[in-house]
Design a protein around this nucleic acid. Sequence first.
DNA 1: CCGCGGATCTTCT
DNA 2: GAAGATCCGCGGA
Length: 200
Amino acid sequence: MHPPWRLRPLPRRFFARPAELVARELLGKIVRRAGSEGPLAGRIVETEAYLGGDDQAAHAYVGVTDRTRVIYGPPGHAYVYLSYGIHTCLNFVAESEGQAGCVLIRALEPVAGLDEMRLRRPKARRDRDLASGPGKLTAALGVVLGDYGADLTRGPITVHEPRCSEPFAIGVSRRIGITKSVDLPLRFFIEDNEHVSSFR
DNA sequence: CCGCGGATCTTCT
DNA sequence: GAAGATCCGCGGA
């Protein structure tokens, strides 16, 4: 009995590239986190890249602080933060050490642990509501602030190549919910996937 | 389906 | 002291 993803997590070198490229190539990959009744996992269908340098929308724009330190650190780690005082959001650190850059995971298509996800997301009326947003998917997977800095090559959060996958078209747009550097085309999503956050 | 506002608290000014 | 990489429920069309 194989799960629908490769057991070996993606290596650190996958993340050690420009955030924009990592964001694009994360589409279709599987995020996994241990649940109480087995693995919780979802297919990434929407991402956003946050850069160093001139990207004023990026948390890292203020420089190295207690909060942004991990974004400047080695790639392949989790950057988790509290959004609006309520929701946690999950990012993967990209670029080489010393360079800011990360990828916000904005939406997942649930693929394993659906029963436990439904318990963790009691407000979700349909399965498409379980993880179709950055705050929803962390609730569904059980990602917490304590996951800040976690090594994605070791767990508890890991990223995997799917065992088999259909080809898909990639859409690009502006990022959502920001007020600075709004024009950059840094949001990537799988076209016509109903789990994308702004799907009509 | 669409727009609006409240919740809630950490981070940086 | 204000803003914020969001979500949800409400009311109206």
